[in-house]
Design a protein around this nucleic acid. Sequence first.
DNA 1: ACAAAAGTGTTATCTTTACACCCATGT
DNA 2: ACATGGGTGTAAAGATAACACTTTTGT
Lengths: 244, 244
Amino acid sequence: MDVLKDKNYVNQSSIECVIFGYEDKTLKVLVSKLNFKGDFYALQGGFILQEEDVDEAAKRILEERTGIKGIYLEQFKVFGKADRKRKTFIDKLIEANYLEQGEEITSSFSYQWFTSRFISIGYYALVDIKKVSPTLTELDTSIEWCDIHDIPDLIMDYNDIFEAALTSLKEDIDQKLNAFNLLPEKFTINEVQEIYETIFEKTYVRTNFQKKILEMNVLERLEKKYTGAKNKAPYLYKLRELKY
Amino acid sequence: MDVLKDKNYVNQSSIECVIFGYEDKTLKVLVSKLNFKGDFYALQGGFILQEEDVDEAAKRILEERTGIKGIYLEQFKVFGKADRKRKTFIDKLIEANYLEQGEEITSSFSYQWFTSRFISIGYYALVDIKKVSPTLTELDTSIEWCDIHDIPDLIMDYNDIFEAALTSLKEDIDQKLNAFNLLPEKFTINEVQEIYETIFEKTYVRTNFQKKILEMNVLERLEKKYTGAKNKAPYLYKLRELKY
DNA sequence: ACAAAAGTGTTATCTTTACACCCATGT
DNA sequence: ACATGGGTGTAAAGATAACACTTTTGT
């Protein structure tokens, strides 16, 4: 378990990522089940190397977990309560998994590291769920997309972190026009509308929504999308390159 | 200079505060001149005790510097570049001040502390400038309110931090209705308008501004304010207690 | 009475919402 | 031809901006 000794991480600082994806009219979050007896679920976190920018550390963690580069991410909040320690959780975990070797473990470097107080910098990421190949670390047995309405009890204050991320996403979405990052490169206006309806849990009038999005002037109209459905084919759009 | 050894601070984490005040139709920021030869200016920063919430640390620092309790503050951004070190500045400072004792200083605990890489959590605060009694620490010779258009070259990346704080303030002000925190408890609508005009550097139509602010429904009308001016006396207002 | 600034009300303009209408597509 | 969903236009409703008018205050 002493896996950290050789890495030169900044002490007592960590990064927590809430990775949002969208599929089947559902907003989802990537949740890990930890590689221990007992049901321990967590979000995607990691640490910051001494010679690494905090933003880069977040990117690195996201790339490790999703296998894709150039992910859209926003730093949204710092979680800095004095009692933000993994200690309660780790002790529970040790009790359930390593009952015999208590002494040995609690004196280890990693135990000291993991149970200390952490100041966590929260990021949320928006990804095209189709492009993601969720990747396990040595600490988790499985990693899955969870409907945001169906998130299990997470360890620590991860449920709060998730809630805060969702709130920030909603606040940012019109301002930063970042909803498009949940979609593939090419998409129809209707797909954008479905994302908005999913996130804000309300319906929009189709014709007005179309106008609103197009009047933002950030989309470029491409070819039509023939789906084989017996109706008029919608146009595909992509994010316009912004020229200055 | 070894003042830190006995304090149990979190390593490599710091807090930086941008304290805004308002006076004479001018938005101002509290700037310290450091207690060393050479012109070194800085914002108000500090460190986080092990048993202290990050938010509480920010409050403590603000209270120390301003002498007032219950300050309005917002955590707005984390500054986490890998090269965010005071080293360049500290070495310059030592060169200008302690040329003889180089060796002794650079091996000290405080030198190691101050020159290491820091992850800084940025807060901005809004205060009633009249209530503030700016308080020196052992590190600064003077501390003054600076017009935001007339901020000197600050050490490190403090100029960037200030700019980011100002941007966040502008973004937040309508959403969080926090401009009132720059005023005394009782104020006139006209004073609010002047703050808005100062911050956004544009004028508002008096009558419409009045409506906009009052329709927010967060103000309580009090008595009139007789100034001795030969015109109709304006009403005073205060922030309404929100009942649930 | 008058100047100066506060408060109120009305009209015009712009934005948002609702909805009617036509168009393309596959059966 | 028709059912289905896409795209455009237009009118109603609502929000914002411009401005006229009245009120209060001290000289």
